[in-house]
Design a protein around this nucleic acid. Structure first.
Lengths: 328, 328
DNA sequence: ACCATTAAGACAAACGTTTGTGCAAAACTT
DNA sequence: AAGTTTTGCACAAACGTTTGTCTTAATGGT
């Protein structure tokens, strides 16, 4: 080297004020020449910061999650963080194990969206006890008491119902998610309140909770078609369920949207590909990813910033497609 | 503690033969009681193994990649490894940067699928120089000289052409990927050779290279429809291109498969959702993921195992759907 | 009973940084 | 010119493991 201690080198590379500009530039030059690669592990060990962020989502191969993650990655990479992505597969157990794994890996923080199965939250306390930031998005709970970014599910339902009423629908069914998950509960509340607002009768037969898979959508639509009085619109709380419903409608030669209009949720890519294309709620995937990343950065930069909780709620946007457009 | 040195504890937890069973169980009991969590960073620093594996794919939000990654994750998690997932966005530059980032993070190995833009491979030498395993899948190159897992692209084209000929098609077009990428080149070769085998004339107008996006598929299909003599089948080397083609065909009121049959590639979920559903080549996503993981584990366990190169080529499977089924 | 072998674990160095403290020289103050 | 502050860096400890070597005690062989 050039007669200098490791500590001086470290400080030089980090632009410590107590190092002269001359040695700084000298050190940096040598670093370049020798193609010096800092050892992240050693740095992490000593400083306690691994520069790794853990992510837990239900499934990476859903468009919504993968595009949120993509945007989180872009933001955090800029700040020297890398992502460790795990998936819960909607399983509570796997979610718990993922948390353990991530904590063992000494991540600097965790970003998560809850599994469908998750209805208790003690496992998240481990994270809080460790003192590292935890940010939830989309499927988060108020009970955990951490920062959250998501859309206004209640408002989404309002927008959907308003739109359907505008199209002339008067008997609107809702294929809902399980109401133990907050977001689905809110969508149900929004649906009911919107009906009231428009002075439409609330019919229990028109509200069906389920897992929102394609199969579930098919089953629920089949049930709806057995009703003595058919609905003239179906609002599904998930695109896959909407797709299942659409399949059943086509099999029964029911015209969409003329006889029954259809609206989904999440704006999965296929909604614009099927025919008729399915109207759906866009959840601002990109925006959510960016906001999550920014919120995370805020938290790691300012550890003592605890007291204030940030809940960011985005306004949803209805993408109107053929499945619910009765007139231009 | 219980009057024992850290070294003894470490060895006890790792079942070192020179530690008595008595102390081993004692140590493990205390570890349980105290909820001891080993510090991966310290372990990584000392042992030189981070237990992290880097992944580079073009896009996580493609179904093929995300399901491969999902299966890699499952396998590697069982062996104590965690994944750092990065995406190149099909960009050569981003791919280079990803490699640098991963190496800096001291990953124990890298698993990658090349970006479309990538046509030179020096940046992968950095990985080999570091002496850590590199495994390629799907989009890999023979030149790099590393283990590879993928499907037989040449055979895929054969299967597709055979199927189309069986359906009575005699003028088969191919919307191809750029031939500088090996897998697309092989699909083109397979396509040409299969035509020869069936003694069908090879028509240059029927072979169009492109990026295989939806838009590209639309453009290429539009071109094909301008030909004086229309094709009676289109084989697209990617599902998105096939979808674009299908859109154009429907807009021109051309019956699929009666007038023009259509086959795609990758078996993306939407292929079964659109109407008509699109026949497509299934690439054994799960199998690929598992094989990649196993190959990686082989390599890290046996560093000196270098000389032999493993190329695993899976047989593709054609999923026949409505878009190419002229009779049952 | 003496030497050889094995067993069980202690000891200490090492991995490559970061960081608090100490200390000399330089710069500034009056 | 003497005291005070600032500057620039050296020193050394520390992060929590892993691992090669050494030591002591126990076991075995003759």
């Amino acid at each position: 080297m050039l007669n200098i201690t490791p500590s001086a080198v470290s400080r030089a590379l980090h632009n410590h004020p107590r190092i002269s500009d001359k040695t700084k530039s000298a050190v940096k030059k040598v670093a370049k020449d020798l193609d010096y690669q800092p050892n992240h592990l050693a740095s992490a060990l000593r400083s306690g910061k691994s520069k790794l962020v853990g992510i837990i989502v239900a499934k990476t191969n859903s468009y919504f999650f993968s595009s949120v993650v993509e945007n989180i990655e872009n933001e955090l990479n800029k700040n020297g963080y890398n992502l460790i992505i795990t998936q819960s597969n909607e399983s509570f157990d796997k979610e718990c194990r993922n948390i353990d794994t991530l904590l063992q890996t000494q991540v600097d923080g965790i970003i998560a969206s809850l599994a469908n199965e998750t209805i208790t939250f003690e496992h998240y306390n481990k994270i809080k006890e460790k003192g590292i930031p935890l940010i939830l998005f989309d499927r988060g709970e108020n009970d955990i008491g951490v920062d959250y970014i998501g859309i206004d599910d209640y408002a989404s339902s309002n927008i959907v119902v308003n739109h359907l009423v505008e199209q002339g629908c008067k008997r609107i069914a809702h294929i809902a998610g399980y109401s133990h998950t907050r977001i689905y509960k809110n969508r149900i509340r929004g649906y009911k309140d919107a009906l009231k607002k428009h002075e439409l009768p609330e019919d229990e037969d028109l509200l069906l909770e389920g897992s929102l898979t394609i199969e579930d959508g098919r089953a629920k639509m089949t049930e709806l078609l057995k009703l003595p009085e058919l609905p003239d619109a179906v609002y599904a709380a998930g695109d896959y369920a909407a797709l299942g419903a659409l399949q059943v409608l086509k099999e029964h030669n029911i015209k969409v949207p003329e006889q029954i209009a259809l609206v989904g949720f999440s704006n999965e890519p296929f909604t614009s590909l099927v025919s008729p294309s399915i109207s759906s709620i866009y959840q601002h995937n990109k925006e959510i990813g960016k906001l999550v990343a920014k919120q995370f950065l805020l938290r790691v930069k300012d550890k003592n910033y605890k007291p204030v909780l940030h809940k960011t709620i985005l306004e949803p946007e209805l993408i109107i497609r053929d499945s619910s457009r009765k007139h231009d």
